[in-house]
Nucleic acid binder design. Structure first.
Length: 480
DNA sequence: ATGTGC
């Protein structure tokens, strides 16, 4: 790999434009020396392929947690000019608005620890999880259209959460330009029973405590301190987003042919941003995004109820405000500086998190002085990070950073090496109480299957595209 | 990630 990539800086590697004839811009990968050695050849190809798509700006980017994905690598960021660029479902991913929400409590680790087993059991009972899991909400086809277009406002209106919640969600939990008439009935039918469910795979709910604070000033602004208990929710748009992606991939293959777009890989099917096809996908994808935010909102509501029940705290005494909620699979219209000029772009983040710095629009006013919060979940045995957005990210990565640990072992390989039983008892010996819906998921998601989150956080911190605020460790985990 | 396939 080192003979292809050019080292620009300690953690910045360039994939030259001449690597592939069709590349319009170079690739840029943010990795340390060890991750460069381990880099999959397929990821390099995917970074190069994305660099061939019309209208791409500056670089085809890959974050330190990058790994092989559908068309675009996971951990990939690509921005396309609205005038002559494309939008691609493969650049968003199947799980539209897969993302993470972090909730703070006014409880310490010592206060929660005695209740941890009961708390995890109660959360497990109250929040449906697992493959094909169904929520507790009874929705009609008419109502799901409201969810897709109103997002979290629908949830609040129906009693799931607090009015102020929307202030601390990317896009206020309701992205504009969502048109439910562009989502197929089959996608809606899949989404109907699943609203308010965790899902499976790497989706989880964790009770964590703040293990170490790196930046007191920013931690104070975000309302976190050492030993405080936080709750992290990692979930997405379930079968609905998956179906939207599948529907539009087929549609985009035809569109790519119609507009004469040469695809280095069929999985990069796309259409011009302002074509009918491009706009339709954008409006359908936004529905998937609103569904995912609503999904995390309903889960939040049941998390609050569960804490009140188990800890026997009256609702008015329990503070469980949202710190922030980030999307890490999405394409967004944003304005960024390119060669000194402001340009309207479609920024694709697939397994990458927005990292808007201080003073940026679209971040909560409370956080304006320090930049937006970024949530970086690790694997269940280690840690997660809360970081903040930076000016450097605005200049370097279209305001983007990593999204988590990223896999190093495939699910199949992980299951061959480890058993769920041994993982559960190992975690318990570390003081982490785990409940999982399916038998195999703990082995699939074992700590050894992931990159070291400390290293991913160190790399993005050292490059300066997001900065460490604090590290959290899990004490209770729920897995799909 | 996913009613784990075209």
């Amino acid at each position: 790999m080192e003979d292809i990539l050019v080292k620009i800086d300690e953690y910045i590697w360039q994939l030259p434009k001449n690597y592939k004839g069709c590349m319009l811009v170079p690739g840029r990968l943010y990795l340390n020396d060890k991750l460069v050695e381990q880099l999959e050849k397929e990821v390099l190809e995917q970074v190069a392929n994305v660099a061939c798509l019309p209208g791409i700006q500056k670089y085809s980017l890959a974050m330190p947690d990058c790994h092989y994905g559908y068309g675009f690598c996971i951990g990939g960021v690509a921005a396309f000019d609205e005038e002559d660029g494309v939008i691609s479902p493969g650049g968003v991913g199947f799980d539209i608005n897969c993302g993470v929400r972090l909730i703070r409590t006014n409880l310490t680790r010592e206060e929660v620890q005695p209740f941890i087993k009961e708390l995890v059991k109660t959360l497990f009972r109250n929040i449906p999880s697992g493959l094909g899991s169904k929520g507790k909400i009874k929705l009609s086809m008419g109502e799901i259209d409201d969810v897709l277009e109103e997002g979290v406002y629908w949830a609040i209106k129906n009693g799931y959460g607090w009015k102020k919640d929307v202030k601390y969600i990317e896009e206020n939990g309701c992205i504009k330009n969502a048109d439910a008439s562009l989502v197929s009935d089959s996608a809606k039918k899949r989404g109907l029973p699943q609203l308010g469910s965790l899902g499976s795979g790497n989706h989880f709910l964790e009770i964590q405590y703040v293990d170490e604070v790196f930046d007191d000033r920013v931690a104070k602004v975000y309302g976190v301190e050492k030993d405080q208990v936080l709750v992290m929710i990692h979930s997405g748009s379930r079968g609905l987003g998956h179906q939207i992606c599948a529907d539009y991939l087929r549609y985009m293959e035809k569109a790519a042919r119609k507009y004469g777009i040469k695809l280095p890989d069929r999985q990069l099917a796309c259409a011009p941003i302002n074509s009918e096809e491009g706009i339709r996908y954008f409006k359908a994808m936004n529905c998937g995004a609103n569904y995912a935010w609503t999904n995390r909102q309903l889960i939040t509501h049941w998390v609050r109820e569960s804490f009140e029940d188990v800890l026997r705290i009256p609702a008015e005494d329990l503070e469980m405000d949202i710190i922030y909620d980030v999307a890490h699979n999405i394409a967004k219209r944003e304005v960024h500086k390119v060669d000194g000029k402001l340009k309207r772009l479609m920024v694709h983040r697939k397994g990458a998190t927005r990292s808007f710095g201080p003073g940026c629009e679209d971040i909560p006013s409370k956080y304006e002085s320090v930049g937006q919060p970024i949530i970086l979940p690790g694997d269940m045995g280690s840690a997660s990070y809360l970081m903040h957005g930076t000016e450097r990210a605005m200049e370097e990565t279209f305001g983007s950073t990593a999204h988590g640990a990223g896999r190093v072992l495939s699910r199949a390989k992980a299951v061959k090496i480890y058993s769920s039983k041994e993982i559960k008892s190992k975690l318990e010996s570390m003081g982490i109480y785990v409940m999982a819906d399916s038998k195999g998921v703990l082995a699939e998601e074992c700590p050894e299957a992931y990159k070291d989150i400390d290293i991913v956080a160190d790399i993005v911190h050292n490059i300066g595209i997001s900065m460490k605020v604090c590290r959290m460790k899990p004490i209770g985990v729920i897995k799909g």
